[in-house]
């Protein structure tokens, strides 16, 4: 029973012709590729970085993001949990990341 292994046809590298037209992402509203804002990314990476099994609690988050208001941290947390990036663990103040892998 010979399996016929067909090599995949040569991949044609896709050129990037109109790079100049891409427009620059100027301004302070920088949005990284994953569709999250800077604040949301900061919150997410802090939660990801937490080694504790119960996750990072809101208090720690607040302490490490002193440039952000409690309301904006809450907002980011809400958004992230709505999107499924994080979830609450032992109580509503502890969060863990799903995409920690």
């Amino acid at each position: 029973n010979k399996s016929h292994n067909q090599p995949s046809a040569g991949r044609v590298p896709i050129g990037n012709p109109g790079m100049g037209e891409a427009g620059n992402f100027g301004g302070n509203n920088f949005m990284p590729a994953n569709g999250l804002t800077v604040a949301q990314n900061q919150v997410l990476s802090l939660i990801k970085a937490c080694p504790r099994p119960e996750g990072l609690n809101f208090h720690d988050l607040k302490n490490q993001l002193q440039h952000m208001t409690v309301a904006s941290i809450k907002q980011a947390v809400d958004f992230l949990s709505n999107e499924g990036h994080i979830y609450s663990t032992v109580d509503d103040d502890h969060f863990k990341s799903t995409d920690a892998e």
Binding site: N82, G84, H85, S88, V90, T98
Partner: peptide, 20 residues
């Protein structure tokens, strides 16, 4: 603990739904 598992499962489902 059940709650955590459930939250995690729900979060993963949401994430999966976003990625469809």
């Amino acid at each position: 603990l059940v709650r955590i598992q459930r939250n995690k499962a729900a979060a993963l489902l949401r994430l999966a739904a976003r990625n469809v």
